[in-house]
Write a protein that binds this DNA or RNA. Structure first.
Length: 426
RNA sequence: GGAGAGGUGACCGAGUUGGUUGAAGGUGCGCGCCUGCUAAGCGUGUGUGGGGUUUAUAGCCUCACCGAGGGUUCGAAUCCCUCCCUCUCCGCCA
């Protein structure tokens, strides 16, 4: 039989059809809730039939060895059993088919937005707060394209030569600055917030991708290695969250907090024309990611805590930013509530999204079957959360634009000096 | 990639001439008893998921699960096939 774990709890869907439909609508998804309900009903009917018949079969089968011992003729009864067996096989086949169908439909039902998430599209995103302010220059600040060129920090052309457009190479001081940034962020989370650093596979299987909710919806956005049916992760969230997949954790194992730097791969299918030039939207980039496994009752407090963990990085770099609470249609498929961090890029004169901090509640835990024993010893799903802390490329943009001098040289932010030989100028 | 060994419950470990074994035994853990503490001892309990019944996440009935998926059979942890994983040796590459 199929495992049949899934997504949203089927019982919950059964009992909250309208709520689930509203979530689908608000999130602008196209999942078929009615079909799920119908399949669920059908499945239970078949299940009942199967169970009943199987019980009969089990019972008779138990008696057969004894009948044989008492030298009775069993051919008649075996003939009957053969019929049951055949019928059972038919039902079983249909049952697994229905189960599979149900599972597939279920996988397409998104998580339900938390109650305080504004309904609507991007326009309804809610300003939460900001920090610092837009800096004033006594010269006209250059944008990052100019700074990158004059300092020879990156090379898009040569990267394209080996991988096509949308890839970037960091050169010399650019590479050093990126590495400094990554190391700084990792150390910060590890030392200041007690995250445990991990370094995990960036090539993962289909089950893993499904566990965190990237599949089946986003297959088009993923790079796949056909020969082995493995996928390049779009974020370290995938590997880290799946660390505990298919496990039941003891009560005191929770909470757990992990941080990891990893390359992230995104095909960005269908987003041509949307800021596709430069560093803003590329197929491969580095990101420091935080993931937490917590008991359900604490997940919203932890969500806010993680948001602050991410904010503190920007504060330490003295970069002005604002926090936005995402509206339903802007939420990811798996998220119940998400805060975005947008950093100010003074040369480009716009805010850039550098972090997303989300609570998935038990959505991913259900898919990946990550459970724990609560205080009473009962098995429950954990809650998972993650947040970027932070994505490198856009942080890089903001950084060089903010720390530029009139002569286009770049100051090293004080926080990064220890990582750059204590230089003042990059 | 080739050869061999193996994948059983929280853990260790039986079971591989198919049948009442969801699974002996042990450890651990829970509860109770006993002993002035500790140690030991005695009793008892201890998987997950689905379905049905139910006011009920109580109880009861039932089904599934012994790496995964198929097959043979009245009946499979036990037989057959495919795949995955672990270990050892060889080869290959670092």
């Amino acid at each position: 039989m199929l495992k049949g774990y899934g997504m949203l709890d089927i019982k919950f869907i059964r009992e909250n059809i309208e709520l689930v439909k509203k979530a689908v609508h608000d999130k602008n998804e196209s999942s078929d809730v009615d079909k799920v309900i119908a399949l669920d009903k059908k499945k239970r009917e078949y299940q009942f039939q199967y169970d009943t018949m199987r019980a009969e079969q089990n019972e008779v089968s138990k008696k057969i060895p004894e009948l044989k011992k008492t030298t009775q003729d069993t051919s008649e009864i075996l003939k009957e059993m053969k019929q049951i067996s055949t019928k059972l096989k038919t039902i079983s086949t249909e049952l697994s088919q229905i189960s599979l169908e149900l599972e597939n439909e279920l996988l397409n039902i998104p998580n339900i937005p938390y109650k305080d998430v504004p309904v609507g599209n991007e326009a309804e995103n809610e300003f939460v707060h900001d920090w610092g302010k837009k800096e004033q220059f006594d010269f006209e600040p250059a944008d990052h394209f100019e700074l990158i060129n004059s300092n020879e920090l990156l090379d898009f052309q040569r990267a394209a030569k080996m991988s096509g457009s949308g890839f970037v190479g960091y050169l010399g001081k650019g590479a050093q600055l990126e590495r400094a940034l990554i190391n700084f962020m990792l150390d910060f989370h590890i030392k200041k917030h007690n995250y445990q650093e991990v370094s995990l596979p960036i090539l993962v299987n289909r089950t893993t991708m499904t566990g965190t909710g990237q599949l089946p919806k986003l297959e088009e956005d993923m790079y796949r290695v056909d020969a082995d049916d493995l996928f390049l992760i779009p974020t370290a969230e995938v590997s880290i969250t799946n660390l505990y997949a298919q496990e039941i954790l003891q009560y005191d194992v929770l909470p757990q907090k992990f941080v990891s730097n990893s390359p992230c791969f995104r095909r960005e299918a269908g987003s041509y024309g949307k800021e596709t030039k430069g560093l803003q939207r590329i197929h491969q980039f580095n990101k420091v990611e935080m993931v937490r496994f917590v008991r359900p009752e604490s997940s919203y407090a932890v969500l806010y805590e993680m948001l602050q963990d991410a904010e503190e990085i920007l504060q330490a770099l003295d970069l002005h930013y604002r926090v936005v609470k995402l509206a339903t249609a802007d939420l990811s498929f798996a998220s119940a509530k998400t805060y975005d961090l947008e950093v100010w890029a003074p040369g480009s004169k716009k805010y850039l999204e550098v972090s997303s901090v989300s609570n998935f509640e038990d959505f991913q835990a259900r898919r990946a079957s990550i459970r724990y024993r609560n205080e009473k010893g009962k098995v429950e799903f954990v809650h998972t959360l993650n947040g970027s802390g932070l994505a490198t490329p856009r942080t890089f943009i903001s950084l060089i634009e903010k720390y530029q001098n009139a002569d286009k040289t770049i100051k090293v932010p004080p926080a990064l000096m220890p990582y750059l030989d204590n230089r003042r100028i990059l």
